[in-house]
Design a protein around this nucleic acid. Structure first.
Lengths: 139, 139
DNA sequence: TTGCGTGCAAAGGTTTTGCATGGCA
DNA sequence: TGCCATGCAAAACCTTTGCACGCAA
């Protein structure tokens, strides 16, 4: 992970501000591209990928896929502390990100360390699944 | 999910036996294709994808991606130990991917459902942290 | 014999790369 | 001014699809 954030370009700022505005939902390259074009500041696809790669590398953005489908999704990671003691639950249907305070977290961490020798970083770990609101929806 | 397993073809048997032999790790289409070719029984890529789709549909194989990277991974699911839940632990230092079948982890899913109304999809969920080998290493 | 499975090749979509140009520091 | 970032287009990939032929039941 690099800390160098490079030059400040118009494209980079637009891209990041869009990701932040969509931090509670799904975003993909097509959506980003369409948004930037609609804003009157179109950005080349290659640039979007390159900036995204850098942001993921810096840990500012998380990349994932839904059900192994083609096409990655991206989401801004709020780096503000205070989330270290939270579970993060992300609904793969509606994209909502749920923060939950729960004592069970420390039990999981203890178990991982004791049985698997693995120290969990709860600020990076996200549980993907279906939220209660989407349970009955068609998927 | 269908139960019809279709015809028994040489390709299908080879493919499944390879997946079973790799059940503790992950495999992708390229690896499967290379293995089958090396065995002297090459199988067309389209057939591999089609058989894999069917196996996933039947619940015999799990499909997932790591870090949203391009290219799906596949893993055989042993239907005899249905109580086991499979989770992935990824070391953010050395990048190693650890596969775990652990009963305690199914407790996590129960907890998430009971206390947070959230159905965890373990094929998408990855725990990030530090593995035992890297515990003492500089990061 | 019947129809599903296979192989090949082409199509479709996503992501990466090469290279010349533009723009930040 | 020196580099890094950008754009465009082509390339590289991964996955799906159409079609004719082969093979299991």
């Amino acid at each position: 992970m690099k800390n160098d954030s490079g030059y400040n370009t118009r494209q980079k700022e637009k891209l990041l501000s869009y990701l932040i505005s969509k931090k509670d939902g799904h975003t993909n390259v097509a959506g980003i591209s369409a948004y930037l074009a609609a804003e009157g500041t179109p950005v080349g696809t290659a640039t979007i990928y390159r900036q995204l790669d850098r942001l993921v590398d810096q840990g500012l953005v998380r990349r994932y896929t839904i059900d192994g489908k083609t096409g990655a999704c991206y989401q801004y990671v709020d780096s503000n502390d205070g989330c270290h003691q939270h579970f993060h639950l992300k609904c793969k249907n509606c994209g909502v990100l749920i923060h939950t305070d729960c004592d069970h977290l420390s039990e999981i961490n203890k178990h991982m360390l004791a049985h698997h020798g693995f120290t969990v970083d709860s600020s990076m770990t996200v549980f993907y699944g279906i939220c209660s609101d989407c349970r009955g929806d068609a998927v």
